[in-house]
Design a protein around this nucleic acid. Sequence first.
DNA 1: CCATAAATTAGAATTATTACAATTTAATAA
DNA 2: TTATTAAATTGTAATAATTCTAATTTATGG
Lengths: 144, 144
Amino acid sequence: MVFKRTHQDGDKNMKMTPQRMAILEYLEGNTAHPSAADIYKAISERFPTMSFATVYNTMDMLKEKGMVLELAIDPDKKRFDPNPAPHHHLICVHCKKVVDIHSSFSLDLSENERNSFDIIGNHVDFYGICPQCKKKNKSGQQVK
Amino acid sequence: MVFKRTHQDGDKNMKMTPQRMAILEYLEGNTAHPSAADIYKAISERFPTMSFATVYNTMDMLKEKGMVLELAIDPDKKRFDPNPAPHHHLICVHCKKVVDIHSSFSLDLSENERNSFDIIGNHVDFYGICPQCKKKNKSGQQVK
DNA sequence: CCATAAATTAGAATTATTACAATTTAATAA
DNA sequence: TTATTAAATTGTAATAATTCTAATTTATGG
Ligand SMILES: [Mn+2]
Ligand SMILES: [Mn+2]
Ligand SMILES: [Zn+2]
Ligand SMILES: [Zn+2]
């Protein structure tokens, strides 16, 4: 998804501030699935006055607009996905790197397995060890 | 999995305390995927002296022994699965209820999609709305 | 420019979790 | 049984992520 930096119809009552522009720019095309702290760090470098609250406020707004997803991949902190289109993830169990998987799988539940839920969607997490962590492990390093 | 309440070879240096017995008993056959707070509340009713730290300590130990899994399903808090056998989950997006799905799916990644990771496993989350929340929504209630 | 609603900010508050150090206790063996 | 002792429990402090708040600043429209 390409973020717009100018006002559109749907964006009434949404001010375009330098902080937001910086966040949008940082997120655009970003496939690293950053945490709030990642975003804050990256942007406060060039924008030292920015507050953490602004990151959370902005991400909330983007969530509500459906422009980013909040991921529950890391039990310790929320991470964001600037790509709200349906896709799956490959996650390194050591360093928590998250890589997008764009294949689609046919995942159907039987009547019985649906447990009377209305099914909305699904998501596959693949777990593994990334090439970097493989190297580190070989050389005897400990990642967490 | 059935938890043992007596010492076995692998359980050397593991004391069987009343608190642990209460936690094991609470977890046995529990399919509700409780949080630490859920466990604490349930057990401190009958065991008012118990500390939150004991819940966390015990769950850490059970994780290390592979008897429970820590789930990253709820971004706000960790939840535990007393069933460490591979299975999938159906999650209500309103109330965060988690139901086990025991079917298996063939989920293979192409060489290219593997991104040079060593793949260890996978997990499918199905999202939906549970029957209780469907009812509540109809009657105009708001669930968060 | 002016008015003003919305956004930013610093910092306080809250929540979940982890760390710590003193006390208690389960398990072992005399 | 009793003594020993390593491990577990406990209350509390510390930390980390996130949310809340109230004062200040600012983007936007007229
Ligand atoms: Mn993604
Ligand atoms: Mn389960
Ligand atoms: Zn890695
Ligand atoms: Zn529900």
